[in-house]
Design a protein around this nucleic acid. Structure first.
Length: 490
RNA sequence: CGGGGUGUGGCUUAGUCCGGUUAAAGCGCUGGUCUGGGGGACCAGAGAUCGGAGGUUCGAAUCCUCUCACCCCGACCA
């Protein structure tokens, strides 16, 4: 491992790429655009999954699993959906290989599929084709299903976690009897995502709705949570869609209402992906490596012994064991790194790189004084504490770190929402300061497109808490009734 | 998919323009000794058909042709 990470202010993008690899989160694979998620990275993802899964179930959802392959005919039933994904689909055309005359493995042209299969870029079509059979009466509704799966979107340019050709995610797909209920569901899940982002990832997000051009292919409304990264670029961290009756109509999913009438069901879908890993990295980490919020850190506390010779190590191990037991009893994950193959200094740097929130160092001096050295990853501060106070201090500190990461990220985010009144200011802020720009927008796709062309900034969302005010559009000067958030985005 | 670039031990690179001993260095790896409160030192080792195929030549990492892969910048996207 080379010693130094590129500094964030030198090259943020390079810093990110290096960090993901050096912190052992993921690496590129032999397959273009596809990553290998390494054990440490996957452990974080598992924590994200576990918590989200709990939240989904708490809000009444059940998990299920639908196929990886989608028949092309299903896919083409919803027109705008096809338009949105057609350009990035992997297609399975054959089902057999054979040896050619030189002994090379080739595709067997005789084994052509009657109907080609799309590798799912998302599962709306196959799920709605299934829901048709599941839904007959209003009594079968609502249908509240989630699946954890991988999906494939054939991206031209990929970056670990932020955009990969294959990624892991969850996709919720719900069916409701009324429009109102589906709308509430879509908004509810946006709230679940925001809650998760802020309380577990310690990442402040803005809840809002997407403009028509940024909307999911096939949705009537897309609710999103938008986060701000340290380099001033926005990142869409989760989306929840109100699909109206589009998929119900395309797949003929009807139910008999209480009144005995045949009606189409109302739909939502919502998802977050391994992209959250990228968001997590870019929200908190620093030039020394990852900084993980305690609630998602695979290792919350690491203990590094400092010793000379086996005898001292044994003595320290004895002292450490009750500490480990007490911490584990409190549900805190602890690693005692007693490897003799690495030096303390090396380990310190290693765990800083990996973002372990708290580090305990314990050596002969501490044994004498019944103390340990306790170091915080987020502030890089160290203090000497008495062993008897250790567990309660750690509990408090973990909570404090979680809180402080959020507060710090929030302060950064809030100081990077800049309201502008005209387009010169807009460009000025975008170039010099970055972040979100709050401005009046006339509501037209033309304006949105022009601004994107000229500045590369897009409308990230119309914030939920926006007030109905009137002003003039930052670009066109035409009357405008909403303020929206612009930013350059990942 | 358009423009640019790079492929040399596990990693990062030098050497390529201008062909000529046994392909070089740092990191990492293995063994050992000393060490141990912030990536420690020294000694001794292992490890490369120079991305692949073909060609030119007495001789190719170096020149030519083809091919593959990856990276960066654009268009597209969670």
């Amino acid at each position: 491992m080379s010693k130094n990470l590129t500094k964030r202010n030198e090259d943020y993008s390079k810093w990110y790429n290096e960090l993901v690899i050096k912190a052992d989160l993921a690496e590129n694979s032999g397959v273009r655009g596809c990553m290998v998620i390494k054990p440490y990275g996957f452990a974080i993802w598992e924590k994200i999954q576990a918590e989200l899964d709990r939240m989904f179930k708490e809000t009444g959802h059940q998990n299920a699993y639908f196929p990886l392959f989608i028949p092309k005919s299903y896919f083409s039933k919803e027109a705008s959906h096809v338009d949105g994904f057609a350009k990035e689909c992997a297609v399975v055309t054959h089902y057999r290989l054979k040896n050619d005359k030189d002994g090379k493995i080739i595709v067997d042209e005789d084994a052509k599929l009657e109907e080609e299969l799309i590798v799912r870029p998302t599962s709306e079509t196959i799920i709605w084709d299934t829901y048709r059979k599941w839904v007959q009466s209003y009594r079968d509704l609502p249908l509240l299903i989630n699946q954890w799966a991988n999906v494939v979107r054939w991206e031209m340019r990929t970056r670990l976690f932020l955009r990969t050709a294959e990624f892991l995610w969850q996709e919720g797909h719900t069916a409701h009897a009324t429009e109102q209920e589906a709308l509430i569901e879509a908004e509810k899940m946006q709230g679940v995502y925001a809650d998760f982002a802020e309380n577990f990832m310690a990442m402040p997000v803005i809840k809002g709705v997407k403009t028509e051009s940024e909307r999911f292919a096939g949705a009537l409304e897309t609710y999103a949570i938008e986060a701000l990264m340290q380099d001033g670029k926005a990142l869409q961290a989760g989306t929840s869609h109100f699909l109206g009756q589009n998929f119900a109509k395309a797949f003929d999913v009807k139910f008999t209402s209480k009144e005995g009438k045949q009606e189409y069901v109302w739909a939502t879908s919502w998802g977050v992906s391994t992209r959250l890993m990228g968001a997590l990295v870019m929200t908190h980490s620093d030039d020394k490596g990852l900084v993980l919020p305690p609630k998602l850190a695979p290792i919350q506390v690491v203990i590094v012994p400092i010793y000379k010779g086996e005898e001292q190590l044994n003595l320290i191990s004895e002292k450490v064991q009750p500490i480990i037991d007490k911490l584990r009893a409190k549900g805190i994950s602890v690693k005692f790194d007693n490897r003799d193959t690495h030096k303390p200094g090396w380990k310190f740097a290693e765990y800083e790189l990996k973002g372990v929130p708290l580090r305990i160092a314990i050596g002969p001096r501490d044994i004498e004084n019944d103390t340990v050295e306790l170091a915080r990853r987020d502030t890089l501060t160290k203090e000497i504490v008495q062993q008897e106070d250790l567990v309660s201090i750690i509990e408090k500190l973990l909570a404090e770190i979680q809180e402080s990461l959020f507060t710090k990220a929030l302060a950064y985010r809030d100081s990077h929402i800049t309201e502008v009144a005209n387009f010169d200011e807009f460009k000025e802020v975008l170039e010099t300061k970055g972040g979100f720009i709050l401005a009046y927008w006339d509501g037209t796709a033309e304006t949105e497109e022009k601004i994107k062309e000229l500045t590369k900034a897009t409308i990230r969302c119309i914030p939920n808490d926006t007030k109905n005010e009137s002003g003039s559009c930052v670009f066109s000067g035409k009357p405008a009734s909403v303020k929206v958030l612009f930013a350059k985005a990942y």
